[in-house]
Design a binder for these strands. Structure first.
Lengths: 202, 202
DNA sequence: CACTCGGCATGACAAATGTCAGAGGCGCTG
DNA sequence: CAGCGCCTCTGACATTTGTCATGCCGAGTG
């Protein structure tokens, strides 16, 4: 019994190499490849693979978004996410999106092949180290508005612009920012953005 | 005649896949692998490869630093840098460090094999798109102190801390930041940091 | 040499940001 | 339903940051 795979990663070199390596396994066959989120969706619709192996960081739509769409359109297709730099929050969002596996790119190809089989069998697999990170990082202490405002502040926009985009007064924006900063134990909003990013909370 | 290769990348999955794929070429043989900058150096000393294929982003020391050391210790070893997200400034620094090739991870394995041969023959190869980016981005307009202060401001530290670390008055630090911001056409120091990062100027 | 230009450095002032106390609303619990 | 805790929101005030005018010094130029 062979497992039909969809491979999605924006880096041709890695995708091609991975395809070659996984094809060496007798029970795995790569039926489609994609270089972006939307392309991955289109390929999945066309080929209906058993397992979709998605990179977390892709142009167009990230792995989690693709997984969400796939869950709705192709419930029989298991999703496995592979990532370079795993942020704790991403893992949580991925699991909520119905992803069955979540592994860093530091695993070996053999291990990946095993995990693909595990996922195909209906089981879940999460890298132990990433799981530990996610647990120790815990849930986001930020409220919805705090996260929203912090998100808007992420690229260095001044308070006036954030206030306009969020339809809030400048005082309120400063207040949320201040609250987020103290909750994260940061010194100012910018380090707060960095910390929230690292934990995957924005 | 075979080309002896050193492969360095912190992601096992990619490194292993790449090694497998390049080994399919009759004239290429992977003699060593490394997962970090220092390890790459040690491996190079031990195996004296003909060509070193280095990832730009590695723990310990980045590809450019490794290339600089290699140039001094093993002048006969050509260096080829592979990168996920190519920043214009990195290309310039890489070439100054004596790197012979610079390609994004979006190339195919065949293309990479060809480039390895090109580099081994003593020629240079730079990805045309990255080259165009580097040329259009041009040289950094920042002075030494401006770049230094911007670097210290990168993680969101307050001016007082930057001033102390750079042994300058706070007014001077603000002045350099202001100057850097206007040169980069940014709205504030944080977008300036982001822009400088994108162009590889910090 | 006298002059100009650009980098380096500083303090004073204006503008943006961070902090604070408090008001209204909503859900939970006794 | 009264009381409590939390989220949301606001303006006033203190602090930090950004801008400007200015001086000093070394390199290049007529």
């Amino acid at each position: 019994m062979t497992v039909r795979l969809l491979l999605a990663d924006d880096e041709h070199l890695i995708r091609g190499a991975l395809a070659a390596l996984l094809s060496l396994e007798d029970d795995l066959v790569v039926v489609a490849e994609a270089a972006s989120g939307p392309e991955a969706l289109a390929m999945a619709r066309a080929h209906e693979p058993d397992v979709a192996v998605l990179d977390l960081q892709m142009p167009g739509a990230d792995g989690v978004k693709v997984a969400t769409s796939l869950r709705a359109e192709l419930p029989g297709c298991r999703v496995l996410i592979v990532t370079g730099h795993g942020r704790p929050g991403h893992l949580k969002r991925a699991l909520e999106a119905g992803v069955r596996g979540f592994v860093p790119k530091t695993v070996s190809a053999q291990k990946l092949a095993e995990i693909i089989r595990t996922v195909h069998a209906g089981n879940r697999y999460v890298d132990p180290e990433l799981a530990a990170d996610a647990i120790s990082a815990g849930d986001s202490p930020l409220t919805a508005r705090e996260a929203e405002v912090l998100e808007l502040a992420a690229d260095g926009a001044p308070v006036a612009e954030i206030a306009e985009r969020a339809a809030l007064s400048q005082g309120t924006v400063r207040n949320y920012l201040s609250s987020a900063v103290s909750k994260l134990g940061a010194e100012n909003r910018h380090t707060a953005v960095r910390l929230a990013r690292e934990r995957g909370w924005v």
